[in-house]
Amino acid sequence: MPTFSEEVKMSIVNTEFLYPEIELYGAIKGKGDFVIDGNKKYLKITVSSLSSMKRVYKLCKKLFGEWITAYVRIERRLRIGRTGEILLDLKYAEKIIFNIGIDIFEDKVPSILKEDPIKLGVFLKGMFLTTGSVSLKSSYHLEFFLDISEKYANDLIKTFKELLGVKSNYIIKSNKIKLYIKASRDIVSILEIMGANESVEKLMDIVKVRELKGNVTRTINFITANALKTAESSSKQIKEIEYIIRNKGLESLNEELKKIAEYRMNNSDESLSEMAENLGYKKSTLYSKLKKISKISQELKNNGGNKQ
């Protein structure tokens, strides 16, 4: 069964190529390396997902025609399975992307991505295909594991916030940047602008189910807490009334307090609200009268019990 990350990748593999050069730039930022072979310089894009490999290969073929090299190798030593690699002529790749105003060597987010959420989404699509992942196990977590500078990472974080309203952060791990997003609504926003519509629907269903379960749990906890509070309060009131009965008798109370005391003795499981409704009092009024009974009991205790 494919992971949710793989489902997201499969969801965007067959989407339309809106801005091929921007998507390629995203793939390069995700998993691009520069390779020198003799006098030749290449741009190598590594892809660990076969579905992503198909997408990136089609993308490169669309831009470079037959002037690309692609192959799949097995990495048993690293236990990462099949890994796809695509080699592009560095000079040609640099020129194609530069034609739309992006310098692949510049250490900041290109201005055309900061001004248009659609173009930013295309960029993120290419980056996610090569190095993105989403985890929904115990919490929500989308991340990009990138070989970029902290300056570039901070520029991305600022762009996410200003253009999409998405909160993100990063940590450094193995000398690389792990850029992550944790809020479910923010992850939905990222998936939406990447065009992963099927994954958006699935994630929203998961969020709704978890919220429902959370609400049920909170309700149960609230009811339990109230029940405990009612039981403790009722037990205290009954002990006070019993003390009055033993030491002075309920006849010592006025008719109204006597009626309330007798009702409480016979309805120990009722909350203050239920008692007030059944006795025809306002809750605040009943509370005040129960406090009077409590005060009488306390005065008896202070005076040593029966003073009849």
Rank of each mutant, 00 (worst) to 15 (best):
T3G: 06
T3E: 10
E6C: 08
E21V: 11
I22N: 10
I22D: 10
E23Q: 13
Y25M: 08
G30I: 15
G30K: 09
D33M: 08
I36K: 14
G38E: 15
T46H: 01
T46V: 10
S48N: 12
S52K: 13
K54N: 09
R55V: 07
K62D: 08
K62T: 11
W67P: 00
R73V: 05
R73M: 02
E75I: 03
L78Q: 07
I86C: 08
L87V: 13
L88I: 12
E94P: 07
D103H: 03
D107F: 08
L124M: 15
L124C: 12
G126H: 11
L136N: 04
Y140C: 02
Y140T: 00
F145N: 08
F145L: 10
L146V: 13
S149E: 04
I157G: 13
T159A: 12
L163I: 12
L163M: 12
S168V: 13
K176H: 15
I177R: 12
I177V: 09
K178I: 14
K178M: 14
Y180A: 13
N197Y: 10
E198T: 02
V200P: 00
L203T: 01
V209G: 05
R210L: 07
G214D: 01
F222V: 08
N226F: 04
K229L: 01
E232L: 07
S234T: 01
K236I: 05
I238P: 03
I241Q: 01
I241C: 04
Y243M: 07
Y243N: 04
I245Y: 05
G249R: 01
L250N: 05
S252Y: 15
E255I: 06
L257D: 09
K258N: 01
I260S: 00
S271A: 05
A276G: 05
L279N: 00
G280M: 00
Y281E: 04
Q298G: 04
G304M: 08
